[in-house]
Design a binder for these strands. Structure first.
Length: 420
DNA sequence: TCTGGGGTCCTAGGACCC
DNA sequence: TCTGGGGTCCTAGGACCC
């Protein structure tokens, strides 16, 4: 059996922990540039706010219902996520952090008759320890655990947890689940499935996996088996990322090369930092820039370039220089750029790096320097020391007009409580 | 005026090998 | 008129996840 533990409206719940005024009222959390809605409280959901919808299209609705609106605060969410995950990992040796707000637990060896009680205890414990409410779905496969979670979230009478056994009992429930809500069935497949007369999960579970594999792909065939209670996806070990992307939309349109260079250098430096954190080297880097495709009246331009490093590296200086070199190659004067990004690719473990016979790697890498930079930033806070080229004003930065504090990760921003 | 960011996996098709 | 058989690797693009 598997359990899927999922934090309810996670970003909103994090904000509520430190600001009780947000409880019981509609709350929205916005994307990076205060651009889109990326989290909604239940109250906001029932008012009709849609995930991913631009804020400016919802201004009237926000004003009308006096909705609380917040910029995203990923420092806070990341730290709260760590707390929840640490506690959850104490429940089973077999666990997988699936996303910032979800964890799969392997329940082998747990007494089946007590799973329900067990789920209730887990919910209570997480709520008490972190003030984050979670929902728990349990099933014989990951897909069924996800489906059980779908029901646990939707029906208040289930009190936040639900177990989906396989066989007839599960089938009876799955006919209430739209095919598009199944884990792994997205918009495209669900449209295609509907055109074939398959509208809910039970119908998909009863369809022929071999035929569906031909019509769609292996993944959908596996999903069918999983819905039938035959496990195809196991608990996965945490592995190093295979690529690292840092990208942002700008707060305003950028035309000058120098400003763009600063942004790209900044992204490259962040990516390099992440790279060293996971003990990897990168073989190459891709840089991209683009104008806003929403502004149909502006001239459109989008381009990217991939550059290989002379050898696998985790050196910020080399990575930064290469990023700027790439930018030079794709930059065109006369466009209003809205977004840029840097992607590190062909990542390998720094323990298994392949040296180049013809290159003296010490002349390329600044290992000692990188180490010192990382240590200083660890000790005195992120960006305590940084590259000059990344800090020339940062006018490309996006808006974060209504951001809560870093309550849990910055001594200067601890929660203040006033007593009457 | 204003439209997120960060990932993984699969497939088809092309290029290439003998 | 007729034009082999069997394979690998790489890439771009699509679909999906949160």
């Amino acid at each position: 059996m598997f359990a899927l533990v999922d934090c309810n409206n996670f970003y909103v719940s994090c904000e509520r922990v430190f600001n009780p005024r947000l409880v019981n009222i509609p709350v929205l959390v916005l994307s990076n540039n205060d651009g889109c809605i990326i989290a909604r409280s239940n109250e906001a959901k029932s008012l009709g706010f849609k995930m991913g919808d631009p804020v400016f299209k919802n201004r009237d609705l926000i004003r009308k219902h006096n909705v609380a609106v917040l910029s995203s605060n990923f420092q806070l969410y990341g730290d709260m996520s760590n707390r929840v995950m640490t506690l959850l990992s104490g429940f089973s040796p077999d666990y997988e952090i699936y996303s910032i707000d979800e964890m799969f637990l392997g329940l082998e060896g747990f007494e089946k008759s007590k799973l329900n009680e067990y789920a209730k205890q887990m919910r209570h414990y997480i709520l008490k320890s972190t003030h984050i409410p979670v929902s728990i779905g349990i099933g014989p496969t990951k897909t069924l655990a996800k489906a059980a979670n779908f029901f646990a979230k939707r029906y208040p009478m289930l009190e936040g947890s639900y177990i989906l056994q396989s066989g007839n009992e599960a089938m009876a429930k799955l006919c209430h689940m739209p095919v598009g809500d199944i884990w792994g069935v997205g918009r495209k497949s669900s449209e295609k499935l509907k055109s074939l007369g398959i509208h809910h999960a039970e119908q998909l579970a009863k369809s022929d996996p071999l035929m569906m594999r031909k019509k769609f792909n292996v993944v959908l065939a596996k999903i069918i088996y999983e819905l039938r209670g035959i496990s195809c996806f196991g608990i996965e070990e945490e592995e190093a990322r295979k690529s690292i992307l840092v990208s942002r939309s700008f707060g305003q349109k950028v035309e000058s090369f120098e400003v763009l260079r600063e942004a790209v250098a900044h992204f490259a430096a962040n990516a390099a930092e992440k790279l060293r954190q996971q003990n990897s080297y990168a073989g190459g880097i891709s840089i991209f820039i683009r104008t806003s495709h929403f502004n149909v009246n502006d001239a459109q331009y989008s381009n990217s370039i991939y550059l290989q490093f002379p050898k696998e590296t985790d050196d910020s200086i080399l990575i930064l220089k290469t990023a700027v070199q790439g930018l030079k190659a794709i930059y065109r004067l006369g466009y209003k750029y809205k977004k840029a990004g840097v992607m590190l690719l062909e990542l390998t473990s720094n323990q298994l790096a392949q040296e180049d016979f013809f290159i003296d790697s010490d002349k390329i890498d600044n290992k000692a320097l990188m180490h010192v930079i990382d240590v200083i930033n660890e000790k005195y806070g992120r960006k305590a020391i940084d590259f000059a080229i990344c800090n020339m004003g940062k006018i490309w930065r996006g808006r974060q007009s209504i951001k809560s504090k870093a309550y849990t990760t910055n001594w200067k921003e601890l929660l203040t409580v006033y007593a009457n």
